[in-house]
Design a protein around this nucleic acid. Structure first.
Lengths: 253, 253
DNA sequence: ACACATGGTGTAATTGGTACACAATTGTAA
DNA sequence: TTACAATTGTGTACCAATTACACCATGTGT
């Protein structure tokens, strides 16, 4: 929760800069050590976590707004973004709306209005991100999908919908390319698919099918260090990948 | 184009009733005599066609707004609606914005602002619809997908995106159920699939696969009248259909 | 040297999709 | 009445894809 002074500092001018009633919420996915992660922020002085978000400048394209918001949270310039759903329930930010209503007169309180929020999901290479809190948060960090905190407002709904969308678009969007690092092993890629699809896949059939798509380059090197046989490294053949996605990766996982 | 008087009558109060910056555009699909149709309106005094649309009341849920708008255009109460994309380009309604700018002072001209439009697609039974013009149109009617007029603003983009979405969701949404009448023949259903997928399908394999899903009831009666063998009539088994859609109709069309 | 966990490759059995052939039904024209 | 054209209903052989599993290779710890 903000003090009255903060509220005035931040938002006295907000209504002049940003479009009223419109907000953006982003679900940023990363993948690290075989686990899917989502970027979240923890409210100042509250045990409530929320998704990176913000507002749209009066003349700014939607995509630019999402880019700008995520550049501030991650440090990344060109980020893979997809609009996936609009969250427009009139009561979705009721708690937020009422939180500050006694501090500021309604016409000065940007937070007091109804917001229709456009949901974007983002896919990033985990190692490129520098999580950076915003003005209302003390922590910005990756959270494991198996260990999620309590969400603020309707942000759990937004997150779930993003994950569902990811699952449905797995064969039509360059999801592997954007979530994996430049070089990766086949078991690592399989883990990503298993997490998104939420089911086990057969190791051998997965490998054969993936290679069959013709979208991977097998590298000379192997990943040393594990206590077992060193797996080969692969990279995506971006050109072939994008060509294959146009038709959809013909596959019923 | 409206007169100044009309503009004042309609929109003097609009800013008090509707959310600023937010609009809804709907792509209403119907199916009749083997052809896909889309519901469109023709502007008063202009050769420009547009999609049914409207605005959201200050405290109204988005879905209710879309329902309300379509009830006015079609007469139908409970309509199958799916949100599919947001159109937020700052210049998307430039023509519209400037059309009335000299008639009314900016603060009174609801049309003068930037609109972020939420796109919904709707699926209706052709026979249940009574196309009804709105205040800015002289004609409201079905247009064949093979004979589309010139679109106003970015409405062609919206229409295309809706059709693409329909294609992608064919195995996950009750598209057949909502577009076909209660009783229909197999060739009629096949025509629908062929239109949405934009390709020919094998008659015999289509029939076998459809029946294999277990989502159709074969009726006793046949459709007489054609100059050929009378085809059987079918109806959807809604319960099985919805159960099957949860998993997605496993099929690569 | 050996066990063990993991990665890489091959193969047989099954399933599912494709491409047809052929019979049945209906209205029309000779 | 009969032949015919157009369309629907059903079956089947072939090919491709998926699944389930076997076996070998490689690196680490004992």
């Amino acid at each position: 929760m903000l003090t009255k002074q903060q509220l005035e500092d931040f938002w006295a001018e907000a209504g002049k800069v940003y479009l009223n009633h419109i907000s953006i919420d982003c679900v940023v996915f990363g993948f690290h050590e075989g686990q899917m992660k989502v970027l979240m922020l923890k409210s100042n002085n509250e045990d409530a976590w929320y998704l990176p978000g913000g507002f749209v400048r009066k003349l700014e394209p939607m995509e630019n707004a999402a880019d700008r918001i995520l550049k501030e949270r991650t440090g990344i310039d060109e980020i893979f973004l997809q609009q996936f759903h609009v969250f427009g329930d009139p009561d979705r930010s009721k708690i937020h709306n009422e939180m500050y209503k006694d501090m500021l007169p309604a016409e000065k309180n940007f937070f007091g209005q109804r917001f229709i929020s456009i949901g974007y999901y983002a896919l990033v290479d985990f190692f490129n991100v520098t999580p950076t809190p915003d003005d209302f948060s003390e922590i910005c960090t990756w959270r494991d999908l198996n260990d999620l905190p309590k969400f603020q407002l309707d942000h759990e709904l937004i997150f779930r919908k993003a994950l569902d969308t990811l699952r449905l678009q797995l064969n039509y969007q360059p999801i592997g390319y954007n979530l994996m690092p430049k070089e990766f092993t086949m078991p690592e890629l399989q883990k990503l698919y298993e997490t998104i699809l939420d089911k086990k896949l057969d190791r051998r059939n997965f490998q054969r099918r993936m290679l069959g798509f013709g979208i991977l380059n097998k590298l000379e090197t192997t990943r040393k260090g594990g206590a077992h046989k060193a797996p080969y490294l692969y990279s995506f053949d971006l050109k072939n990948y994008q060509a294959a996605l146009k038709e959809g990766l013909k596959s019923g996982w």
